[in-house]
Design a binder for these strands. Structure first.
Lengths: 139, 139
DNA sequence: AAACACCTTCGAGTGTACTGTAAGGCAAGA
DNA sequence: TCTTGCCTTACAGTACACTCGAAGGTGTTT
């Protein structure tokens, strides 16, 4: 049984990207498409998996340029596995650092929300260590 | 003892923004500055705290437009506290959702790194539940 | 006197990742 | 036949948040 083939419109809906974006990614060398006798693009399950993966990478914060580089290395074969691993490791480190930073900022925001609640209830009573720093942000 | 006053250049270094950005934020209504007799901007500790706070808000993912709205509400007084609280709560929810999503993408990336390591060591042995899904991304 | 830091308005440039349009053409289905 | 969906190249437009430069000015410091 031959694998199902999807034309760009159907494929776009499947992977959640626009046809514009799919052609754009192809221009950029991130994805490949096969063509039928009329030159019309078609995609298979394999392409769904690949697009799924690059969306995961993008979701971690990887940029198109980095993705391009990654794809280029991948095309060069197994000898570049070490380098690819290092790329992913770096992306991972950066993403984790950004998440921590964002969580720190969120702590301040949470504290402000709490402060609003207390102010509304006229029952301000706070003795956390964090308190001194945070008080500076309240009028 | 009068509070120290900072001109824009010094202040920019203190808060980690460029003088361009400070004037831009002022144009946008995010910050205010006092002026000396010659019309030269100066800032005080109070402004350091305020800029610190808006940088925390920005750090959670809040956009300039939202920040503008927040500042406008703040200027309207305590009657808008409820609305401000809701704004912050929404930003918090969005930020937490984005963090979770990013962590999910990171899990895939981590798995790929692990897969590279195993491939390099020729000892692939993996029996996690997650495994079936993730295998789809490896060539 | 020259250098320096600041002031103004206004508009152009930067980077990222798309998103869309124009203008022309092909092939299959109702 | 007409519509729909696809194809191409090439370029303009969008959103966001700056970032910078021009061109003219003031006041303080060396």
């Amino acid at each position: 049984m031959a694998e199902k083939q999807y034309r760009i419109g159907e494929f776009a809906k499947l992977v959640g990207l626009s046809t514009y974006t799919l052609r754009y990614y192809e221009d950029q060398g991130l994805i490949l498409s096969q063509r039928d006798d009329n030159g019309v693009r078609f995609y298979t399950e394999h392409d769904i998996r690949w697009v799924g993966f690059i969306l995961h990478l993008k979701g971690t914060g990887m940029r198109l340029n980095e993705l391009k580089r990654y794809v280029k290395l991948r095309a060069e074969g197994d000898s570049t596995i070490g380098e690819r691993r290092e790329m992913l490791q770096q992306i991972k480190n950066e993403a984790e650092a950004e998440i921590s930073e964002r969580q720190m900022h969120l702590k301040v925001l949470e504290h402000k929300i709490k402060w609003y609640d207390e102010k509304q209830a006229h029952t301000i009573d706070d003795s956390e260590t964090f308190h001194d720093y945070l008080q500076r942000f309240h009028d």
